[in-house]
Design a protein around this nucleic acid. Structure first.
Length: 281
DNA sequence: CTCCTGTCCTGCCGGC
DNA sequence: TGCCGGCAGGACAGGA
């Protein structure tokens, strides 16, 4: 569930909580998450000082002073909790990893479905790491724009919805924001990627940027709540136009809901897609 | 190579 | 009330 905006918000919360600080102790309450932990995971991180926290797609990368880097993915149920002191920490089920910082801060990784992971490697191995080697451009960066997206999509026969979920096409877009961006651009999710006109792809690239920026902005205002308590606050459900709104009328839609039955739900490559058949042609 | 399906995991919700 | 089935989905392996 955490897609680019949610990960960006967690990253922004983690930055001031961790940067320049030493991890005194790392506690692991589980054998492994999605993968088995690197050998001596806790030992390597204990005593390390965090230099910086960055984000790439749906991944966070923490760089440390001994030139190790931690690649951190939240999977779909991953939450990060930050406590100012040990006394503030109240354990919950699925608190799998805890970082006790020297200044008293406690960083907790909670992940009910264990789809997330932490991968430890040397900092100079990051760029060639399997997670990033084939990853597409950052949608909010300079390398993502209409023509660039068109050049990638023009060879793809897959439905545009499926293509947007491909992290090689664009980094960080997941099921929710793919649906929302297609709605905003007025594109039917079933259309094959290569069938889209240059003008439509231009619109789509702009919609992707727009929907991600708005989600980050909305999440920023509830940053504290998101990082400290309930992950669901960060999912901005109130602002979705189509996602999880089967049968409802979409906002700004001119369609007659009694005739169209409102927003439709279909399954594409095993994932739910929500769209408005009147608005998305 | 591309595209698609099955897998992992647990919490939650609807049906009976 | 409680149990069961199905669903949610990011990344990846493997098959066509």
């Amino acid at each position: 569930m955490p897609e680019l905006p949610e990960v960006e918000i967690v990253k922004c919360a983690l930055e001031p909580a961790m940067c320049g600080k030493e991890i005194e102790r790392c506690e692991i309450n589980i054998q492994g998450l999605r993968y088995v932990f690197a050998e001596n995971f806790a030992g390597i991180l204990s005593g390390a000082v965090c230099k910086s926290v960055t984000r790439r797609g749906k991944y966070m990368i923490l760089y440390f002073d001994h030139d190790y880097a931690l690649v951190w993915h939240l999977g779909m149920s991953g939450r990060v909790k930050i406590f100012d002191t040990k006394a503030d920490y109240e354990p919950e089920k699925h608190d799998h990893i805890l970082f006790y910082l020297k200044d008293g801060t406690v960083i907790v990784y909670n992940d009910a479905r264990r789809f997330g992971f932490m991968d430890l490697m040397r900092a100079d191995e990051i760029e060639t790491a399997r997670h990033f080697a084939n990853m597409g451009p950052e949608p909010l960066g300079n390398h993502f724009y209409g023509q660039a997206l068109y050049d990638v999509l023009k060879n793809k026969k897959a439905p545009i919805k499926a293509a947007l979920l491909d992290q090689r096409v664009v980094a960080g877009v997941g099921n929710i924001y793919a649906c929302e961006a297609l709605y905003m651009a007025g594109i039917n999710p079933r259309k094959s990627a290569q069938s889209l006109s240059r003008a439509k792809v231009e619109k789509l690239a702009a919609a992707i940027k727009d929907v991600l920026r708005k989600a980050i902005e909305a999440g920023g205002s509830s940053l504290k709540d998101y990082a400290h308590t309930d992950g669901s606050l960060g999912y901005f459900q109130h602002m979705f136009s189509v996602y999880n709104r089967e049968g409802q009328a979409c906002p700004d839609c001119t369609c007659d809901i009694s005739r169209t039955k409102g927003i439709k739900r279909i399954v594409q490559t095993g994932r739910s897609t929500f769209y408005c058949s009147a608005r998305q042609k």
